[in-house]
Design a protein around this nucleic acid. Structure first.
Length: 137
DNA sequence: GCCAACGTTGGC
DNA sequence: GCCAACGTTGGC
């Protein structure tokens, strides 16, 4: 079991949109590092859902229900998409400012590499974020 | 809206 | 193959 974090601008696609859809396609990634992370995802992996630009907080948990397949929105190039299903809304969203203040979360790419939109998270980091969000899977 | 950080592109 | 210029992302 691996753990991940994905970012989305809620204006474009929010956690609530995923809840409404049931199963959502995670497409449109056009960054090689992020794409490679998508391809490493396995069915059942748990994913933190983060709202960028607006919100700036981890809002929910979802899981991988379909592993990487060719991104249908890519007109050219070698890109991938995966499918997610919403698992649980965090009881308390975890803001970026709180993550930055938590010593054990300083190594997260979310803090270190601002621009990356799909990133791995360690089990310890994942659990810590859930704890801060007062939520259990 | 600004700007820093990072990735990509293209000239040499 | 290096590196400057440019574009994009995303926090502030």
């Amino acid at each position: 079991m691996n753990y991940w974090l994905v970012k989305s601008e809620p204006d474009a696609y929010s956690y609530q949109d995923l809840v409404d859809e049931g199963t959502g396609m995670w497409d449109g990634v056009r960054n090689y590092t992020a794409r490679n992370h998508l391809r490493s995802m396995k069915k059942g992996d748990l994913v933190l859902f983060y709202h960028s630009r607006q919100g700036l907080e981890v809002v929910g948990i979802c899981k991988v229900v379909k592993e990487a397949y060719p991104d249908p929105t890519a007109e050219k190039g070698d890109w991938s998409a995966v499918d997610f299903k919403a698992v649980k809304l965090l009881k308390k969203p975890v803001p970026l400012s709180a993550i930055k203040e938590e010593p054990s979360l300083q190594e997260m790419p979310l803090v270190r590499i601002g621009r990356l939109s799909v990133m791995p998270v360690t089990e310890a980091e994942f659990k810590k974020v859930l704890e801060m969000g007062q939520t259990k899977v």
